[in-house]
Amino acid sequence: MSLQKGRLWDLILRGMTHFMLILFSLVIAYPIYFSIITSLKSSADYAMDKVGVPTSPTIQNYIQVLLNMNMLRFMFNTVLLVGVSMVLYFLICTAAGFAFGKLRFKGRLWIFTFVLFIQIFPQMVIAGQIYQMISKMQLLNTYVGLILVWVAYFAPFGTYIMTTYYGSIPRSLVESARIDGAGVIQQLIWIMIPIAKPMIGTLGIIGALAMWHELPFSMLILQRQQMRTLTLGIALMKGEFGLPTPVLTAAIMATSAIPLVMYIIFQNYITMGSTAGSIKG
């Protein structure tokens, strides 16, 4: 009898837990749901009903966003900027992470601590000076300018992740490469980068998401409308056109399409990779 009672109690507890979690997940997912349903409504429909599902779904908003609002150009800019930056970012973080993680040299601890120190500074502390420098270098409104700033700003954290990774690799690999007479650049290409393969995903997730969502630097450096990234495009869209909400949400969904599809495909990988560098062991 008491066993049965215990089981019932367990079932109730389980049910309550599920209920709470479902409620919580709905609260988290609501903004996305709202964007999706709103993006399929016409402006007149939205004015009538802001809550319900669209009665006569339309893709007109998406057509407008993609054809008239430079969205495809923003997408091209973003993919190009993030792509090139990620290659540089990966090389720099791998090289530096290897040096900190596997080589023994004077001042290693101090330089590494310094890298940890600078990675937390807010973009705003440096934004003013970055703007001055970039404009003096004639790099305003260029891809190169933003790529350099992005890589410089995000590389310290990536370096930290790679350092912890290389710290767990046996040192004998370096020694054997030296005996083979390989120079440091050859070691980088033939040994360090191949070893870092399992980390490409992790670094990619952390770096690419950070760059994809980055706002202040792109806002300062890319001032021509043509040059904007997706995130910057959305941030400035609302004020600029006095845009109807359904069109804005269509732009938001078009912007989020690439990250969302990637997330659906690589979900396990992304959620696990995101914790790299901050969990012991």
């Binding site: 973080c93 530096a96 080589l103 440096i126 000076q129 440091v184």
Partner: peptide
């Protein structure tokens, strides 16, 4: 020596775009 080569890209970039502005 190796560390100097490997670290220089990071240190130059962060030096110019992070440390100097701060």
């Amino acid at each position: 020596k190796d560390a100097l080569v490997l670290l220089s890209p990071l240190l130059v970039l962060t030096g110019v775009f992070l440390v100097f502005p701060v």
